[in-house]
Design a protein around this nucleic acid. Structure first.
Lengths: 159, 159
DNA sequence: CCGTATCCACAACGATACTG
DNA sequence: CAGTATCGTTGTGGATACGG
């Protein structure tokens, strides 16, 4: 925690909700919404599957689904299997897919601190089976710890 | 989204809350709790600063603080500046510091999708001023996208 | 300055019941 | 199977007022 030493003029930016994290939380802050996103990452796309897999009540899921849809994280698209009646499916948009680091970071923390023993799930890359996780790095990928991060106002992001 | 093809036996693990992400959310799910963690990353450590910077009511902060303390994310340690009366300060524990990727991932997503124009804050490494962010990678750091991730049950984590 | 106690408002979730 | 409507309960946050 060396942040503090480098921070001047706190009042201006931490206050109010210019903060991106706060805004993001506003969208996902309902636990159910987040679990829906998780399920999407797992491949769930049908209403009833969300209900049974998240173990939540139908209205709860419906609410979360709408919330995420209007946030642009999820899209409801109609489709019809040949011979079946038309249905809707819920898929992550590109913006939704971008939540992967958030999801993995959460999982990773839980694995380390909340789970006794081994993590229930492991994420590996299809190609070579290597474990994947999130890392804090510079764009040219040497790991960075919280101690040597400094915060600036404004500036452009390359990502 | 190729996850689906590789998932068998959904029922067993997605259901219930073995899920680390769900457990983690349980801890942080109150928005205030998360904002407190954010403030800690920014160097905030005194009760009143949390109140004014998060713009929340004192009881709300007190609740979040206790919650985080009992979760082992935050520690309240008494200290006394010479000549002043003793006070408590709130600092992240090691487990708390480990939340950095979660925090940065959230910020990063918000910057990209919620903020119009440039991000309000930029995170750079002290040493060389390079921008830092979270990346999904294998342990030997080639970026990995959501398309080529596969999920396994069990297994050991090296982190 | 650092909190706590109380009370109130609203938002989130679950249960139940009902439509296409 | 895929939802919606309604209602009661709880959890989260704000306001106010009070004590170390």
């Amino acid at each position: 925690m060396e942040f503090e030493a480098r921070l001047r003029d706190r009042t201006a930016w931490s206050i109010g909700d210019h903060c991106s994290a706060a805004k993001t939380l506003e969208l996902l802050s309902t636990k159910t919404a987040f679990l829906v996103v998780r399920e999407c990452f797992y491949g769930t796309s049908r209403f009833d599957d969300f209900v049974t897999r998240i173990e939540a009540a139908a209205p709860t899921i419906a609410r979360a689904l709408k919330q995420l849809e209007s946030a642009g994280v999820l899209a409801r698209t109609p489709y019809r299997e040949p011979g079946a009646r038309p249905r809707d499916e819920y898929r992550l948009t590109e913006a939704g897919e971008d939540l992967l680091p958030v999801f993995l970071a959460l999982v990773q923390w839980g694995d380390k601190h909340l789970q006794d023993g081994r993590p229930p799930l492991t994420f590996t890359r299809g190609g070579d089976g290597k474990q994947v996780g999130v890392t804090v790095t510079t764009t040219d990928t040497e790991p960075v710890t919280s101690q040597d991060i400094e915060i600036r106002r404004g500036g452009r992001r390359t990502t």
